[in-house]
Every structure is written in structure tokens, then in C-alpha cells.
Design a protein around this nucleic acid. Structure first.
Lengths: 231, 231
DNA sequence: ATCGGTTGGTTGCCATAGCAACAAAATTTT
DNA sequence: AAAATTTTGTTGCTATGGCAACCAACCGAT
């Protein structure tokens, strides 16, 4: 495990070199824990003490519904963190529980030490701070995007906007989703059969064709129009 | 206009006293502009130079759709700010346009100076920083809430969750919405007639009754159940 | 090759919510 | 107070999408 390589996947540390990260370790009161699969490392409603970063393994975020059932509401992979949002709210309480999906290693760093003046007068500290702000700001950006899909009412609109956005991102008429059908349906908050049905319609209309994860866009203009006028 | 009183409505400055705010004015390169109604103070896609805070007047946020039409996507009142999210993303570009709805006064503050070490070694600076982090973190929290409503598929589920949340917030079985029907329908992303129809059904089922902005909850348990099992 | 397991495709039926259109209050303006 | 405007209630019709259920294809392991 190369901890530096892992941390550079994280928005907080992405633009630091190994020496700099090493130096900051102390200021941030970094410490590492190993856990086995199934361990609950964050409990919904409980106070957030530190920010956790997954170094090895993976985790699932859960929301506890009042009837006691758990709803999966996201995954954490290597390099992902938890507690970095709740840690800076007034409540400072976890809004989800985090359960390790496999044996995992977690790095913890102190929340206040990111904003506090560094005693060692470490010049990287300010950069870290900027990264934390970016991290939150960009998350807001991302959530705005997600909301757009949710707000579109028609199936064709949702699908078109998703495909068109991928088209713009990837720049080719053959796009890769990075979703299987179930995940895509869940992301768009629709049922898989209904989504499938509409994809067939769009295929029949000559707008797209597809095979598994690969979508071929035959009529980008039409797709754009559908994506744009979708409310 | 009491600028201090206004600024204290803002999450950034809410826990400072007048003297402290005054002192920070320089560090933040604060400067004030007056504009007349209709002035575009932020243009979607353009770089964010500073954070703006409305001191007098109000503004509307717009998204420009590709066909050129503008979609209202939020209002700014006295004490609200704009650019505080985009200013900390990598792109540093406005994601919406901000147009003043009346003659207005705007206070601008510098974006980097919030994270930079204060030359005057101003002790309040760190507090400000924490507030900025809170501001973003709490926004994420809020957006998570909004998303919950959007993800619920049934009309009754949406309505029930909204009312039940208000019930928990306000602590009384008679709640005030702070929405008219149009706004409520827009917030829930549904059509007003359909929403109205379902509210009538719920009234007939003896769960609620209402008159304008005032909702009386007759059966909180039932409402809770509906809100909870809503997917 | 055969067997489970997963993923994707397909269908019919039905409840739901959108929409248009109008009616009735209620509130603001004159 | 009357008029105008906004807000809310009401309705019928229809398109849409959820759901259950099933089939087909694919994939990795024995």
C-alpha cells in the first residue's frame, strides 16, 4: 500500500507531493486504523470526531429508516472520505452510517486542525484549506447536476440529458456509461423496465443504438434538443 | 441601512460583533456598489472575481437554457450571497446569472482573502474561515434534504414527508408552510392540480385539514408512516 | 458442457399524475 | 366598493411510467 498514491486520489491531497503530505501528517493528527469487514465506522446521528479516509478496502453508506430498515445511499472506495461534510456543520453529527464492505484500513485526520493555524507554520496548510473548500464547493456543483436529472419529468428527457452530458464529456458519439442498467435506473430514479422501454423507443426512432455499457449516438442534434427542452 | 445587522443574517458573519466586522472589512477588501433594478451582477459562465452579498434590494438567479430562454432558479434576499460556491471550485465560473430584481446595494468581498493568512494577524479570520466551511457544508446538508423530496415518487409520499418534516421542525400539529400552492408544487416538482387533488384525498381520509398556508395535522402517526415508507 | 448467478430485454395491466380548462375565493389595486 | 389580479379548488381525459413476471443472454466456476 502506497499511502501517498492513495491520498493523491483525494481532492484534499491531490496536489501535494509525498514530502509535503508526510509533513502534514503531524499537524493533522493523522492516525491509521485497521478494521474487519462489517465494522461500523460512522453511526448516523452520532458526533463526528474526525474525518476518515479509506486507504484500503471499501464501505457502504446507509440511511436508517424509522422502521429500522437500512437504505444503501452510496459507496466509498479507496481514497474516498467520510465526515468531511458533517464535521463542518453546526450539528457535527453523521447523517449516514458508514459500514465497511470488506476488511479495510482507514486514515483519520483532525477536523479543527485543518482550519487552525499550523504551529509548525507549515506553508502547505493553506493549500489544504483551499482544497477543503473546493471539495465542498465542487460537491455542491455535483449535487446540482444530480438534481437536474431528478427534476426532469419525462423518461426520454432524463435519458437524453444523461446521454448528451456524457457525449459532451467524452467527446465521441460512442459513449461509455459507467453504469449498468440497474444503476442507471437508480441514478435517474426510475424503474428499470420503463427506462429500458424508452431506450428501445429511442433506438426505433434512430436516435441511439446500444449494447451493454456502450451507447452510440446517431443523432446528437436530436438528443441535444430532447435534453434541452426537457423540464 | 445598518450594515452590521444585515451581515449578521449571513452565515459568514453571524457570530461577529460590529467591531470585529469592521476590522475585517479591510482584510476582505470589502467594497460596496449600488445598482439599479435589472442590472446583471453575475453572468453564467463568466469568471467569479468576488463574493457578493446583498445589502439592500433583492435578486433572482437564472439559468440560461440553450434555446436562450431563462429559467428562474432561486431568489436572493437581503443578507444572501452569490459566488461563494463557484468561487471555490476549480472552474471559478458562475453557474447561474444573477439579476437584480430592484434597485440594490451589493457588498463585495475578496475570495482568496478568506483563506489567506491575515496580514494584520486578525484573530477573527479563522472564525470566518470556519463559517465559510459551515456555510458550504450546511448547504450540502440542505441539498440532501431537497433531494429526498425529489426522489419520493408518490404524490402522497412527497406531501406527507414535507408536512411531517415541518411538523417536527415547528413542533405543533398546526404548521405553517411558508409556501403558497404554486411554490410548494414547484418545490416538490409536481403539478399543482395533482398536488391539490391529493391534498383533498388526504383531507377526506382525515389525516389533515388546511386553509391556505396553515395545515392542521389530525393524524401525525399516519403522516409519519406515510412519510417514512415513501420511497 | 452444465449449472447457478447476474444482467438486460420484454410484456401487459393499471394506478397515477400531468395537463388544460374552468370555477371560486381571496387579495390587492383603483 | 368595484375591478383586477392572484391564488386556490375542481374536473375529465389521457399519456406515462411503475410493477410483476417472465425470458434471454451472458459469464464464471466446476
Amino acid at each position: 500500500m502506497n499511502i501517498f498514491r492513495i491520498l493523491k486520489k483525494n481532492r484534499l491531497f491531490c496536489d501535494f507531493d509525498d514530502r509535503e503530505i508526510n509533513k502534514m501528517f503531524d499537524c493533522l493528527h493523522g492516525h491509521i486504523h485497521k478494521y474487519s469487514r462489517g465494522r461500523v465506522v460512522a453511526e448516523e446521528g452520532q458526533p463526528v470526531e474526525e474525518i476518515g479516509i479509506i486507504l484500503e478496502g471499501s464501505a457502504v453508506k446507509f440511511l436508517r429508516k424509522p422502521d429500522g430498515s437500512l437504505v444503501n445511499c452510496g459507496e466509498l472506495e479507496v481514497g474516498d472520505m467520510f465526515g468531511e461534510v458533517e464535521g463542518y456543520t453546526r450539528e457535527k453529527a453523521f447523517t449516514t452510517s458508514v459500514v465497511l464492505a470488506e476488511d479495510s484500513t482507514v486514515l483519520y485526520i483532525s477536523i479543527p486542525s485543518i482550519v487552525k493555524q499550523c504551529q509548525n507554520n507549515c506553508p502547505h496548510h493553506q493549500k489544504l484549506l483551499e482544497n477543503m473548500l473546493s471539495c465542498l464547493a465542487e460537491r455542491i456543483d455535483l449535487m446540482n447536476t444530480d438534481q437536474k436529472y431528478l427534476k426532469i419529468k419525462s423518461m426520454r428527457g432524463k435519458i437524453s440529458k444523461l446521454f448528451y452530458d456524457k457525449f459532451l464529456q467524452q467527446g465521441t458519439t460512442t459513449i461509455h456509461l459507467g453504469f449498468n442498467r440497474n444503476e442507471m435506473a437508480e441514478y435517474l430514479n426510475v424503474s428499470r423496465p420503463s427506462m429500458s422501454r424508452e431506450m428501445i423507443n429511442m433506438k426505433n426512432d434512430g436516435i441511439i443504438s446500444y449494447r451493454k455499457d456502450e451507447i452510440i449516438i446517431h443523432d446528437p442534434d436530436k438528443l441535444k434538443e430532447l435534453a434541452d427542452c426537457a423540464k
